[in-house]
Design a protein around this nucleic acid. Structure first.
Length: 417
RNA sequence: GGAGAGGUUCCCGAGUUGGCCAAAGGGGGCAGACUGUAAAUCUGCUGGUUAUACCUUCGAAGGUUCGAAUCCUUCUCUCUCCA
C-alpha cells in the first residue's frame, strides 16, 4: 500500500475507503489533491474537529495537496449528519469572521505556507460557487442525478426523519456533492476525507462526479474518536475543549489530555501527536509508567495547538501542583489560570464565597457555598469549611499570593496587586 | 386543511382529584472516600440571593383562585394519523 495511506491506517485514522487499491495506486503516481469540509458555524473548533487535519498533516508531508473547504454556503443551511436538532442559520458576516479564526486554528496542524517537499494547502469557501447558483439550472444539471429513495436509505437521514428534517437540510447532500464536483473540475481534487458520519455525503459526491463525466474520485473516512469511558471526545466538564485559548485555557487544555483514560493514551498519541510510531511503541512497553505517556501526550498536544511556551508553562505548573511541593516559585505558577486582587481589598477581608465565585472554581455564590460545605474548598493548605469565613492577608503564602483549590485537581491563583 | 398527542429544571423523564413542588427517578456534572492528576466503586450535593427566609423557574401571554407545573382562554412550536 502507498506509504502515506499506510501511515494513516497504522495510526488508527482510517475507518473505510471507497477503493483502497485504486486510491493507493493513484497516490503512488504522484501528489493527489484532497479535501475536507469544515463547518464554520462556531468561532472556534474543538479538538474533535481536528482529526481530519491531523491526518492531513501526514498527507501533506508526503507531498499531497490539501484543500480545507469552509462551508460558508452550506452553513447557511445546516448539516443533518448526526445532529438531532435543526441548526441555526448564520449570516455571511458571522461566517466570514468564523472562517478567519478557524483558518488560524487549522494552521497549527497543517502548513498553509509552501515548504520544501510538502504539498500545498489552501482554504476555499463554497459560498463562492453556491451563492450564485441558479435553482433551475442546478436541478437540471445536478438534481436529476439524485434519487430520493436512495437518499432516504442513508443512516443520517433515517435518524432525522424520526425527529423532523426540513427540505432545506435535505438538500445538503446535493450541495456537498456539488462541492466535490466543482473541486474535482477546478482544482483536480480526487479525494475527499472526513469523519465516518460523512460517508454518505462523500459517496454520493463520487457518484455525482462519475455521472457527470468526471474522473474516478475517492473517499476516505476516519473513525469517530470516542473515549473509552463513553464520554464524547472533546467534551469536558467545562464544555467543549475549544482550541481558542480564550474559551479554554492552555492549562485546562493540557489537563484535559493529562487526564485521559489509560486505555486511550496510545491511541491518542498516534492520532493527536506527530511522534513517530517507533517512539509511541516505547510507551506501550510492559512496565512503562502510564503517567509518563499521559504527560507526553498532554505536552505534545498542547505544543501543537498552543505553542511550545504555553506547553512548557502548563507542564511546569502541573508538575508543581501534582508532583508534590514545588509551588514556591512564581515560575511554577505561571501557567495556572489566575486573577488579580488589590491588596487593600484583601486587607479588609474577602468572604470565601465571594472569593471563590470570582474565579472559575465556582460560577455563583451558591456554587461556592456548596463547594465549601462539601469540604472541597482550600486556600493554600488550609481547608475552609465555614461559608462565612473571611480570607485576609494572613492567608498569603510565601510568594505573597493565594492559591485556591477546589477539590484535588482544580487550582486557581490569586495575584495581589 | 381535518383529527389526536405533546412542550417540565444541563439532558432524558415523572408529576395535572390545585397547596406537603425549586418539582420523583435516571444521566451528566461537582465534592468526599479509595487511588496513579486514570478507570471502577461507595457517599453527599446539583436554580439564584444580602440564605432556617426571600426571589425567579415547569413553551408564551392573559384569566380563575387565599394559592397553579397542575383549572380556563388565546397564541406558538413539535409529533402522529387522515386528506
Amino acid at each position: 500500500m502507498n506509504p502515506a495511506l499506510q501511515t494513516l491506517v497504522d495510526r488508527g485514522f482510517v475507518k473505510s475507503c471507497t477503493d483502497y487499491e485504486a486510491l493507493s495506486a493513484l497516490m503512488d503516481e504522484g501528489p493527489v489533491t484532497l479535501y475536507v469540509g469544515v463547518d464554520p458555524t462556531g468561532s472556534s473548533l474543538h479538538i474533535g474537529h481536528m482529526v481530519p487535519f491531523f491526518a492531513m498533516h501526514h498527507l501533506q508531508r508526503a507531498g499531497h495537496n490539501l484543500i480545507a473547504l469552509v462551508g460558508g454556503g452550506t452553513a447557511m443551511i445546516g448539516d443533518p449528519s448526526g445532529k438531532t436538532e435543526l441548526r441555526q442559520m448564520l449570516s455571511p458576516e458571522e461566517i466570514r469572521a468564523n472562517s478567519a479564526s478557524i483558518r488560524d486554528q487549522i494552521g497549527t496542524v497543517i502548513e498553509f505556507n509552501e515548504g520544501p517537499g510538502m504539498g500545498k494547502a489552501v482554504m476555499l469557501n463554497n459560498a463562492d460557487w453556491l451563492t450564485d447558483l441558479n435553482y433551475i439550472d442546478f436541478l437540471r444539471e445536478v438534481g436529476r442525478h439524485f434519487s430520493v429513495n436512495r437518499m432516504l436509505t442513508f443512516e443520517s437521514y433515517k435518524q432525522r426523519l424520526e425527529r423532523g428534517l426540513s427540505f432545506v437540510e435535505f438538500n445538503y447532500q446535493l450541495l456537498q456533492s456539488y462541492d466535490y464536483w466543482i473541486l474535482s473540475q477546478e482544482h483536480g481534487c480526487r479525494l475527499q476525507i472526513g469523519g465516518d458520519d460523512q460517508w454518505g455525503n462523500i459517496v454520493s459526491g463520487i457518484d455525482l462526479i462519475r455521472k457527470m463525466g468526471g474522473e474516478q474520485c475517492f473517499g476516505l473516512t476516519f473513525n469517530l474518536i470516542t473515549r473509552s469511558d463513553g464520554h464524547k471526545m472533546g467534551k469536558s466538564e467545562k464544555g467543549a475543549v475549544f482550541l481558542d485559548p480564550n474559551l479554554f485555557s492552555p492549562y485546562d487544555f493540557y489537563q484535559y489530555w493529562r487526564n485521559v483514560n489509560d486505555e486511550d493514551v496510545i491511541r491518542f498519541l498516534k492520532l493527536f501527536t506527530f511522534l513517530s510510531l517507533d517512539e509511541i511503541t516505547f510507551y506501550e512497553k510492559e512496565g512503562m509508567n502510564i503517567n509518563e505517556a499521559k504527560e507526553r501526550l498532554a505536552y505534545e498536544q498542547t505544543k501543537i495547538i498552543h505553542g511550545e511556551a504555553e506547553a512548557e508553562k502548563a507542564r511546569t505548573a502541573a508538575r508543581a501542583l501534582f508532583g508534590g511541593g514545588g509551588l514556591d516559585s512564581t515560575e511554577n505558577r505561571e501557567g495556572m489560570p489566575h486573577i488579580s486582587i488589590p491588596r487593600a481589598e484583601l486587607e479588609a477581608g474577602i468572604g470565601v464565597l465571594d472569593l471563590f465565585s470570582r474565579t472559575d472554581l465556582a460560577k455563583t455564590n451558591s456554587e461556592a457555598r456548596r463547594l465549601v460545605q462539601g469540604g472541597g474548598a482550600w486556600v493554600g493548605e488550609q481547608r475552609i469549611d465555614d461559608p462565612r469565613a473571611m480570607i485576609d492577608t494572613s492567608f498569603l503564602d510565601a510568594e505573597d499570593e493565594l492559591l485556591l483549590r477546589a477539590g484535588k485537581k482544580r487550582y486557581f491563583r490569586i495575584v495581589i496587586v
